[in-house]
Each structure stands twice: as structure tokens, then as C-alpha cells.
Amino acid sequence: MKIAVCVKQVPDMESKFTVVDNSRVDESQIAFKMNDFDEFAVEAALQIKEKLGGEVIIVSVGPERIVKDIRQAFAMGADWGIQVQDPQVDEGDSFVVASAINKAIEKIGGADLILTGVMSNDNQSALTGIMVADMMKLPHCTNVVKLEIGGDQKSLTINRELEGGLNEVVEMPLPAVLSIQSGINQPRYPTLPGIMKAKKKRLDVVKAGDIGLSEVGKAASKTELVKMFIPVSEHKAEIIQGDPKQAAAALVNKLKNEVKVI
């Protein structure tokens, strides 16, 4: 089975975030890592490969610094990868990134299964997987917490996580695009032999033009970033004074009718 896994690089959330020009984060103070949800997707792909054979291909869009995380996926066991490294693509929104992924997967001859993280730690748009599916005209499911490939390898059964702890089970044909939710598995650590093999694995680095992507950047984007800022946090505390009985009653009243938590 040929499985493509989309991997994004995101800031380590323990980094210090400073907004520059009301439009972007100062990257000089940021450490980058693989998107957590994508790590679950890589692990899910590797588990399928271990069971059914085939290959796991990493598909990534972004600057040179992403290579370290692609190599991490290689060290975990992915076979090879394709990276769209083009500043013009990076200027675009989720639609442009999804377009680049679509074309990159087309370039590698398609895949039987395409996995993405359910969203990215930074933007949290949860759009890429859905858009890629739409562009490729493939069935798609989000919030996947369990997946099983059918015996004929032409269909799969998945569990989707819903609000309130519910799961729904869905059957769908392959090829398909799935957005993987955290908790589906425990991503493996890269092994030392894996790390050593990773540097020899094939990584095709392409530009937009190489994959037939003509419309890129802000011009091709469907959304416009108006402003980015760090909201001022307001810590408010109210001390209810007076007779304990009355204070307790006032507190219950507030919890019930104002905050609505009981």
C-alpha cells in the first residue's frame, strides 16, 4: 500500500512568541518541531506498512528548515519524501498549501491512502486535509482515532471521535484522505539505526513550477490575514464578603446563573 503522509513544521509551543508588524511571528526566537498531529499520522502509516507492506512517503510544504522534521519521519521508518520548497508557496494560505500538496501527490503518481494531522498546533485551521481531499476528489474523514484497512485493501473502516466522548464508525472506499486525531497511537521514537539510515533516504525537493502549480502566494489565497496580535489577558477575581451562609448562597447563585457551570 502506498501511503502519503503530510507533515508540517510548527513552532514549539514553549517558544517565546513575539508578533512583528501585526502580521507575523518573529521566527528568530522560535524553535521548530514536527506538528504533533502529523506525528500520529506518520505512526499510523508506519503501522499499516508493517502489517500490509508498501511504502510511506512524506509530503511537506515549507522552507529548508523543515528537512530536519522530514528526516525525523525517515528515522521513524518512512521510506522517502517530497518537499515543496518555494517561498512563493509559503506566502499563501491553507488553500495554496493544499494545492501544493495536491500537485506534489500527483507528481509522485498518487497514493492509496493520504494521511494528515487533524490540524496544526499553530494555526489550528483543520483545513488542509479537507481541501486536499476535495481537490483530489477523494472521500475524506476527520478526527480519526482508529483505522483498519479491509482485507481486499480497497476499503477501510474508521472510528471518528465526536464531542461528548462519542465515536462513530464509518466505512469508506480507498483511495481516501484521513485527518488523524491525537491518541490514535503512541508515536515511536526514532531509533539510532533509523537516524543513521535517514540521511541516505531520498528527498525530492521541488518548486511550484516543477509540480505544475502556477497560482501561488497571496494572489492565489482564498483568505486574507488582517491582523495578528497577542490578546491582553484579564485576570479578574471577586471576593464575596459577609456572612458565610449568605456568601455561600451568593457564590452558588453566581456559579449557576452567571458562570453557568453548575
Binding site: K68, R71, Q72, A75, Y189, P190, L192, I195, M196, A198, K199
Partner: peptide, 18 residues
């Protein structure tokens, strides 16, 4: 080297998690 950085990173991740 890039490989040595990866090894160091892998060890850090392992230690922090385990």
C-alpha cells in the same frame, strides 16, 4: 553534523518523555 544533531534531539526527546 546534521546526524549528530538528530541523535542529540532524539536522546533529548526520549529523556524528556521517559
Amino acid at each position: 553534523t546534521a546526524e549528530q544533531r538528530d541523535i542529540k534531539q532524539a536522546a533529548r526527546e526520549f529523556a524528556e518523555k521517559e
